[in-house]
Simulated assay, not measured.
Amino acid sequence: MQTVAIVSQKGGAGKTTLALHLATAAHAAGIVSLILDADPQATASRWSQWRDGAEPDVIDCASPPLLAKKLDQAAELGAELAVIDTPPHADSMSAAACRVADLILVPCRPRAFDLDAIQTTADLVKASGKPGFVVFMAGPQRAIHLYKEAAEIVAGFGLAIAPVVLSERAAYHHATGAGKTAQELEPGGRAAEEVAALWAWVRQRGNVLTRKHVSKEAAA
């Protein structure tokens, strides 16, 4: 099982939005996926309730020592991808998530205060020795210079940038409030295109294969 940790010490960075959309994209691709809700605010868990049991499953885990055990249990039950939604300002849980992750994503708005706040998160990622990337969230749809400047700041912290931005779009807000994701609410919309592109990149980075691909490899 592959594990993606969504980590940021900054509140309101978009961690839950990123976790929900990636796990749902994986599920749509035929991968048995789940969200591990490690945030005491339990936003992902509430979203799951609004979905009336529709997959992906959301599992609560507010205790860092139990994180690895929960992931092992999920793998034994057949999960192929786990996405960990971590809380802000919780070094112990964030550090634990980084330790068990195969890939770490750091959501960040391309704004001065948000960029300054990810330095602590960057230190956690580097200490874990795991590959980590910043995903720009909720920024303007067309702002080349803004993203260029933001990328330079992030590079100074020693982190790389994911090649896909999840822009500020109403579809993300409307979807989560309805217990859905942007790709479910507006399958042909721009937000859905962004999520699909980000998921394709994450799947490649994390070596996460769809069942269709696995079948082809087995047949070979």
Results as ranks from 00 to 15, higher is better:
2 Q>L: 06
6 I>N: 07
6 I>H: 06
7 V>T: 05
7 V>D: 01
8 S>I: 12
9 Q>M: 12
9 Q>F: 10
10 K>V: 14
10 K>F: 13
11 G>T: 05
12 G>L: 11
13 A>M: 11
13 A>I: 08
15 K>L: 13
16 T>C: 11
19 A>W: 07
20 L>A: 03
20 L>Q: 03
20 L>E: 02
21 H>Y: 02
25 A>C: 03
30 G>E: 06
31 I>S: 09
31 I>V: 15
33 S>E: 05
35 I>M: 05
36 L>F: 08
38 A>R: 10
38 A>P: 13
41 Q>A: 13
42 A>V: 04
44 A>V: 02
47 W>T: 11
49 Q>E: 15
49 Q>A: 15
50 W>T: 08
53 G>F: 09
54 A>Y: 11
54 A>G: 10
55 E>I: 07
56 P>S: 06
57 D>F: 05
59 I>M: 12
63 S>M: 05
65 P>I: 07
69 K>Y: 08
71 L>E: 11
72 D>A: 14
72 D>R: 14
77 L>D: 14
79 A>L: 10
79 A>D: 02
79 A>I: 07
80 E>I: 03
82 A>D: 03
82 A>T: 06
83 V>N: 01
83 V>Q: 01
85 D>K: 00
86 T>P: 10
86 T>I: 11
87 P>G: 02
87 P>R: 02
89 H>P: 00
90 A>C: 15
92 S>K: 14
92 S>T: 12
97 A>Y: 06
97 A>N: 04
99 R>A: 15
99 R>F: 09
99 R>W: 09
101 A>L: 06
101 A>G: 13
102 D>K: 07
103 L>W: 00
104 I>S: 02
106 V>M: 08
109 R>E: 15
110 P>R: 10
111 R>A: 15
113 F>Q: 14
114 D>I: 08
115 L>V: 06
115 L>S: 01
117 A>I: 11
118 I>C: 08
124 L>W: 05
125 V>T: 09
126 K>C: 06
129 G>T: 07
131 P>D: 02
133 F>T: 01
133 F>K: 14
133 F>Y: 15
133 F>C: 01
134 V>R: 03
136 F>M: 13
136 F>A: 11
137 M>Y: 02
137 M>L: 13
140 P>R: 12
146 L>Q: 14
147 Y>A: 14
149 E>P: 09
152 E>T: 13
153 I>E: 11
154 V>P: 03
154 V>S: 06
159 L>T: 00
162 A>C: 05
163 P>F: 01
163 P>E: 05
163 P>V: 01
164 V>K: 04
166 L>K: 05
168 E>L: 10
169 R>M: 06
169 R>T: 02
169 R>S: 00
170 A>W: 00
172 Y>T: 04
174 H>F: 11
175 A>T: 04
175 A>H: 04
178 A>Q: 15
178 A>V: 03
178 A>H: 08
180 K>F: 09
181 T>K: 04
184 E>H: 06
186 E>H: 07
191 A>T: 02
191 A>Q: 00
192 A>N: 04
193 E>Y: 00
194 E>R: 07
195 V>R: 01
200 A>S: 14
201 W>E: 03
202 V>I: 09
207 N>G: 13
210 T>G: 10
212 K>Q: 15
212 K>E: 15
217 E>W: 09
219 A>K: 07
